[in-house]
C-alpha cells in the first residue's frame, strides 16, 4: 500500500543542529548525522535539513552534512535554505542530497525552478512556500521566514511553480506555525487540490490528531514537524502507530 510520509525537519547552522533535542540516546545532540540516523531508526520516511547559516563563508558546512548523510543514512533527504542558483542546487545534489528546496530565490526569479527541473529532474525540485491568510480562502506568500510580504497569491504561485517544474510543495502556514494548535487544514487542502504534485504540510503540530487531520481532511501527502520530534513530545513511531490505528497507511 502507498503510504503517507512523516518527515522530521532539522535546522542546521554552521553544520550543527540547532534547537536542542531530548534524545537521551544521543552522544551529541548537535550532530546532524547522529540525529538523522536516530530518526531513520524511528522510521522517518525522509529528512529535511534546513540550513539557517547566516554568513556565506560557513555555507559549505551544509555540503559536508549532505555528504555525510548520504554516506550513512539510506533514506531520501532534502536540503533547503539559502539555495540561490542552479549551481547551488548542483552542489547539494552532488554532495548526495536527493532533493533541493527553494523558496526566496524561486519567488525572485521563477526560472530557477524551470532550469533546475530541466537539469536535474522535477522530482529533485521542492518548492517551499510560507503562506499567510489574507482573506476567506485566500493566502499570500511571504519571504524571509515570514518577515517580507510579496503580494503574491499562494494558490496562483504554486500552480505556476508546478507548471515550471516543481515536483513537490513544502507548505508552511505562517498562521499555524509555532502555535501547536494543528496544521492549517483549509490552506493545505486548497494547495493540494490546486496541484497534481505531492504536498508536505508544515507548521502547527501539537497533538497526534493534528497529523491525522491534515493527512485526511487537509489532503496532504506528507507531514513535516520539528519541535514535537526534537523535544521528544512524540516519537515518529508513535505518530505512525496512531495514524495506522485510525486507518491511515504508513510504513512501519
Amino acid at each position: 500500500m502507498y503510504t503517507k510520509r512523516i518527515i522530521p525537519c532539522l535546522d542546521v547552522k554552521n553544520g550543527r543542529v540547532v534547537k536542542g533535542t531530548n534524545f537521551v540516546s544521543l552522544r551529541d545532540a548537535g550532530d546532524p548525522i547522529e540525529l538523522a540516523a536516530t530518526y531513520d531508526k524511528e522510521m522517518a520516511d525522509e529528512l529535511v535539513f534546513l540550513d539557517i547559516t547566516a554568513s556565506n563563508e560557513h555555507r559549505d558546512t551544509i555540503v559536508k552534512v549532505a555528504n555525510d548523510c548520504a554516506a550513512q543514512v539510506f533514506i531520501p533527504f532534502t536540503i533547503g535554505g539559502g539555495i540561490r542558483t542552479v549551481s547551488d542546487m548542483r552542489k547539494m545534489l552532488k554532495a548526495g542530497a536527493d532533493k533541493i528546496s527553494v523558496n526566496t530565490a524561486a519567488v525572485k526569479d521563477p526560472s530557477i525552478i524551470k532550469e533546475g527541473a530541466e537539469k536535474f529532474g522535477r522530482q529533485c525540485i521542492v518548492l517551499a512556500v510560507d503562506a499567510k491568510r489574507n482573506g476567506e480562502n485566500s493566502w499570500e506568500i511571504y519571504l524571509n521566514g515570514g518577515r517580507t510580504t510579496t503580494g503574491i497569491d499562494c494558490i496562483e504561485w504554486v500552480k505556476k511553480a508546478v507548471d515550471l517544474g516543481a515536483g513537490e510543495i513544502l507548505l508552511t502556514s505562517m498562521d499555524a506555525d509555532g502555535t501547536k494548535n494543528g496544521y492549517d487544514i483549509p490552506l493545505t487542502r486548497a494547495v493540494s487540490e490546486a496541484v497534481n504534485v505531492p504536498v508536505i504540510a508544515s507548521g502547527g503540530a501539537g497533538k497526534l490528531e493534528h497529523f491525522y487531520d491534515v493527512l485526511t481532511e487537509g489532503k496532504a501527502d506528507a507531514v513535516l514537524a520539528a519541535s514535537v520530534f526534537h523535544y521528544g513530545q512524540f516519537s515518529i513511531r508513535q505518530v505512525k502507530e496512531y495514524l495506522k490505528s485510525r486507518g491511515v497507511e504508513v510504513r512501519l
Partner: peptide, 11 residues
C-alpha cells in the same frame, strides 16, 4: 486521481 510521480514508500 493520484499524484504523478509515484513518489514515496509503497509495499
Amino acid at each position: 486521481g493520484l499524484k504523478i510521480p509515484h513518489m514515496g514508500w509503497n509495499s
